[in-house]
Design a binder for these strands. Structure first.
Lengths: 218, 218
DNA sequence: CTTTTTCCAATACAACTGCAATGTAAAACG
DNA sequence: CGTTTTACATTGCAGTTGTATTGGAAAAAG
């Protein structure tokens, strides 16, 4: 056997360059030569690891998903064991919002892929599982943490759909520059207020570390 | 003066073809020749009315905005005079969701433009005003219609941001095929339930024609 | 009629695209 | 050592892109 290189490392290097190109100029600018230039390698090398452009796209989409997953995991683990459901959800969803430049860049790519998969149903299927998994997790947290569920005022699954939609929508508005990050966070907290109901009466012990109930205006 | 044709009509014809191309194959497939073929005219004619591709894009973006605006207007006017705020919002937002094939097609184009403008900040500014106007309108309806506002449990502006985000996010999930339309509608209704609070006690007259509180599961 | 102005068609061109084919260097194996 | 297999680099090619240019047809104005 001849010269051996770490295949995964090379692909990661290229995918990284691809992400930069896509974040800066959009997915339509992702071409063999552009990516090669961004990665500072020869076009031939890119072609060696990705025989076709579609192959590159599929891999890049997987990278986007992995990054999101890693973000979620990190945010959740940072909370320690047995965090309060509301704090958990808040940390998780806030982590997925494009609140700094890194996440903005990833968000632009993710948005581009959303549009990309909208006209390529075959590729879109790769995203179903992620959403479904996230959905049942969020629904579980709501069911476990919101007193309004027992009162029959909140349906966990429907609320989870809405909560994820809020996150997604806020992300898009922030990416588009319609809202500043603080507004998005405020809206997210307000929505969590709605789902988890008013604060318990004074005297009760609150284990919720995140949700001050009336943050300063704007 | 020579041969005279209706300039606006021609541009509308071309824009219509452009929308079809964009809806079926994505914005990146929108080229002079593709659009010309879809409109069944010569490429030269397209070039005569849109000297550059960017000019075409800008016009198409305006078309998308106009269609949305027209949809909103129609939905609102269909409710007659002085509709209940909640019913008004529900009709408006439901109209903006991609629930049938026409709206799905428009939605795909709108989504593509979202990604498009995300890497072209100059063009994105055209969308600010629309969101801002919609936002203040929605906030006003919430302030006028939700008893929770007076109780200090709901901040109209924040709730409006969240409500629009829910709509946007649900639209994206539906477009991506993650949820069927009914799930999106159910989540929208559930969210309106949260904002507008529980139904008034029996005996009070409800003028809300749309929001049954517990629609059948799935 | 002629002139003038608009509408549009056709063509040309340089730049780019994805992809295939070919060539070369080097490292592991026998 | 040589052989073989992998890793890349280079080049070529057909197709598409946006845009400029050119030319002609047709209609209104004189």
């Amino acid at each position: 056997m001849p010269k051996r290189v770490d295949h995964r490392e090379r692909r990661a290097l290229i995918a990284d360059a691809l992400m930069r190109v896509a974040a800066e100029q959009g997915l339509e600018a992702v071409s063999l030569r552009h990516v090669a230039a961004a990665a500072e390698v020869s076009p031939g090398m890119v072609q060696h690891y990705f025989r076709t452009r579609d192959e590159m796209m599929v891999f890049a989409l997987a990278v986007v998903r992995e990054r999101n997953e890693a973000r979620i995991r990190r945010a959740v683990e940072a909370l320690g064991a047995t965090p309060a459901p509301r704090a958990l959800l808040r940390a998780m969803l806030a982590e997925l919002l494009p609140l700094d430049e890194d996440r903005r860049a990833d968000g632009r790519v993710a948005l581009a892929f959303l549009a990309y998969t909208a006209v390529r149903p075959a590729v879109a299927a790769a995203l179903y599982d992620e959403t479904a998994a996230l959905l049942t997790f969020v629904a579980g947290q709501i069911a476990a943490g919101s007193p309004l569920v027992a009162a029959g005022r909140v349906d966990p699954e429907r609320a989870a759909v809405g909560l994820l939609a809020v996150m997604e929508g806020l992300g898009i508005y922030v990416l588009g520059g319609h809202y500043p990050p603080e507004t998005a966070l405020a809206a997210l907290d307000a929505h969590l207020d709605l789902i988890f109901g008013p604060e318990p009466p004074p005297g009760a012990v609150s284990r919720d570390g995140s949700g001050r109930r009336r943050p300063a205006r704007r």
